[in-house]
Computed example of a mutant assay.
Amino acid sequence: MQTGVEAAAKDLGVEVVTQIPQTWGVEAQTPILDAMVARGDLDYIVTAPTDKDQMIGPLKAAVDAGIKVITVDTFLGDGDYVNGPVTFPISYIGSDNVEGGRISARGLAKAIGGKGIVYINSTNPNVSSVEGREQGFKEVMEKEFPDIKVLGPDYNLDDQNKATQQTAAVLEREPDLAGVFGTNVFSAQGAGTAVVNAGLGGHVQVVAYDATQLAIELMNNGVVSLVLAQKPFDMVTWLCSSPRPMLPASRACRVVSRPGSPSSTRITSKTRRLPASSIRFRPNSGRLACRERRSRD
């Protein structure tokens, strides 16, 4: 995501400063946001909200200070910035996470022969991206694969080591576990590590959301059956290169990312939603902050 916005900014003569909190959560994200608002010279903030409810207040304060807000990867409220409870962001750009969860469910079901016990390891409750993935996964398993029992989710709080421990505990108490769905990079890598450590690589299948190098290596080794790749680069370049760019040229911008954020590939429109494999645009979303660059007379 950072690479994408910097590339687009270079093309448009936009100055970008990126801030990445060391940990995940409202407590880490809010002080950074407050500090940006306090500057008094920013025009835009593009961010991935770490909580769809708790980040409403801090981001609304930015809007009240005259800063436009765009959310990427995750959204506020229910994500409907036209008719939903939260309407102040300009746009949301991200993956169709519900559809991604459905794809993950079908891939894992195929890998385990359509029956058995599977487990979901996720990151944090009340985060729109992983919530959508869990929703889509459970929906397909319930409707299309009645012989598959779904356990979880457990939340690792974006801690890969905790994901490994949680998955190892499930493997211990569920000797017939057939598969694991890791809803993001930390979940998938932690789950894959636990499976390998237990000597069950190739026996307990793992579906990984986010195409990290380790996830690809685990797939090549037969531990991971399916890897879902997102397009974080596209998500932010869309801001400046779409037919109606949200960020005008000759502005200075600040981007604040969340740690480990792989981003998504959906741009949802306020009026329509496109398939998961396409880019969607929904007016209003993100955490990128910009200030106008004024020429000297």
Rank of each mutant, 00 (worst) to 15 (best):
A7T: 06
K10T: 08
L12Y: 12
E15D: 15
E27M: 03
P31L: 02
L33C: 11
V37L: 06
G40V: 01
D41E: 05
A48F: 03
K52M: 13
A61T: 09
K68L: 08
T71L: 11
D73S: 11
G77K: 04
D78Q: 02
V82Y: 09
G84M: 01
G84R: 02
T87K: 12
F88C: 04
I93P: 11
N97Y: 03
N97L: 02
G100N: 02
A105H: 01
P125V: 07
P125H: 04
N126P: 08
N126W: 00
S128Q: 04
V130Q: 12
G132M: 03
G132Y: 01
E139P: 09
M141I: 03
F145K: 02
P146E: 03
I148F: 02
K149R: 10
K149P: 09
L151H: 06
G152P: 12
P153R: 06
D158Y: 10
N161K: 13
K162M: 11
Q165A: 12
T167E: 12
A168C: 02
R173M: 07
R173G: 01
E174N: 10
L177G: 06
G182S: 04
N184F: 11
Q189I: 08
L200D: 03
L200P: 07
V204H: 12
Q205N: 10
A208G: 09
Y209R: 11
Y209T: 12
D210M: 05
D210Y: 05
D210K: 03
I216M: 12
L218M: 14
L218Q: 13
G222A: 04
L226H: 09
V227G: 04
A229C: 01
P232Y: 00
M235W: 07
P248A: 00
S257H: 05
P262Q: 13
S264Q: 14
R266Q: 12
I267L: 13
I267P: 12
S269C: 13
K270S: 14
A289T: 13
